[in-house]
Amino acid sequence: MSKNIMIVGVGGQGTLLASKILGRAAMDSGLDVKVSEVHGMSQRGGSVVTYVRFGDEVYSPVIGRGDADVILSFELLEAARWLPNLKNGGVLVTSTQQINPMPVITGAAEYPEGLLDDIKALGVDIRAFDAPAIAAEAGNARAANVALIGLAADALGFDTEILRNAVAACVPEKALEINMKAFDLAAARAAEAKRN
């Protein structure tokens, strides 16, 4: 059995760091792991997706429709775009941040309203948080990627200490304190939301 996690967002949001952290946590858990990244053109503000798979034996580096146990989304529209990849019974952890794509900016398309409710209405286990706000509370909105990992911590299935250490090992030294704070704060928020 393998665990399939997708990290989706907009190029430039820091999805690569998030995938690096999860890959590291899987390695440190003694599991086989594959992390598939996006480089090149779509990093320029396009829709980006990174796949992280771990388990006893993992072959495919990508995750198809209906195969993701967890989708970690940095942006609401991207959560909706990649929803078909979520497994029946999977968990969607998304930031409520909205970034207009160019067709919306130019007026050629509309950013759909009520996406959160639409997704909930499908019976999806969706957990939505304002990740940049939590990161800002910790000291810098740019730590939203690490905050999202904190928010998804219980769904990811890692030992919390292993995940925490993976964060510490992957973020840049000078941003370590803010990132750890963002991770802890986010994990606490997620636990709080679960209780309610």
Binding site: V10, G11, M41, S42, Q43, R44, G45, G46, S47, L77, E78, A80, R81, L83, P101, M102, P103, V104, A108, A109, E110, Y111, P112, L115, D118, I119, L122
Partner: peptide, 10 residues
Amino acid sequence: VGAPIPARPP
């Protein structure tokens, strides 16, 4: 979801 999802080109 039922709503059309606008593309996000680079």
